[in-house]
């Protein structure tokens, strides 16, 4: 049926003979496949970011108490981020196999390195006199952290989260090495088969996804820190 249809109207713009870069016909015909890849991409990214935050927060809080641990944590995170993503994923394979977990953990480690730094910088940016005032008002350590320090650290932390989010979106494509790369799988397939429409569509979607996530995070930051609206 599809062959007949194609014969009626000439070769479609993504046929092997035309192979155009931009082809809406491709998006229409393969929208299920594209949506699946897009959803996988988003899920892997969000899982990696969640993992990064979940580990970075306690790590940063402990590192803040113990200066010696802080340099160890920062040294470790510099080391992790020095390792290229294509090398980090194989190193995780013995533990997690060829699964989405490999990609999530690998990208989570990269996100972690950015987030720990951002959290430490953010907490350090809280003015000392504010802390003293809070202590004078009878705030304990826990309440000081949740009510005073975290809100004030939020702008710096959110800046770090934006960096982590955007680079995680871009890095998820490399997950195609273990066949869990979201849009990266389409890119990989596109290169192997010289399928330009697939390649370009996936690449554009990647960039769009990064921009959308960045905008969402900016809006989230506006909502969470309404007092910075005037300063920006």
């Amino acid at each position: 049926m599809t062959i007949l249809g194609a014969a009626d109207s000439g070769p479609s713009c993504y046929s092997r003979f035309v192979n155009e870069w931009f082809c809406w016909q491709y998006v229409e015909d393969r929208h299920e496949q594209i949506t699946d890849a897009l959803v996988e991409h988003v899920l892997i990214t969000l899982a990696a970011l969640a993992l990064g935050i979940a580990i970075a927060l306690p790590l940063a809080l402990v590192a803040r108490r113990l200066p010696r641990l802080e340099s160890a944590v920062l040294g470790f995170s510099t080391g992790v981020y020095t390792v290229p993503s294509l090398a980090l994923l194989p190193l995780l394979v013995p533990f997690t196999g060829l699964s989405a977990a490999t990609v999530v953990i690998g990208l989570g480690l990269y996100a972690l390195t950015i987030l720990v730094r951002a959290l430490l910088d953010g907490l350090r940016s809280v003015p000392d006199d504010v802390r003293e005032a809070a202590r004078g008002l009878g705030y304990g350590r826990a309440r000081m952290l949740t009510r005073i320090e975290m809100p004030l650290a939020l702008p710096v932390v959110m800046a770090g989260l934006r960096v982590a989010a955007v680079s995680t979106i871009a890095l998820t494509t490399v997950g195609t090495l273990v066949a869990y790369g979201g849009l990266g799988d389409l890119i990989s397939h596109g290169v192997q088969r010289d399928f330009r429409a697939e390649l370009m569509t996936a690449a554009v979607l990647c960039v769009v996804l990064a921009v959308v996530l960045d905008v969402v995070l900016v809006l989230l930051q506006r909502v969470l820190t309404p007092w910075t609206a005037g300063a920006r």
Binding site: I169, T173, S188, V191, A203
Partner: peptide, 9 residues
């Protein structure tokens, strides 16, 4: 924001 892999591809 530009994916390394996509640009290479």
């Amino acid at each position: 924001a530009v994916p390394t892999f996509a640009l290479l591809a």
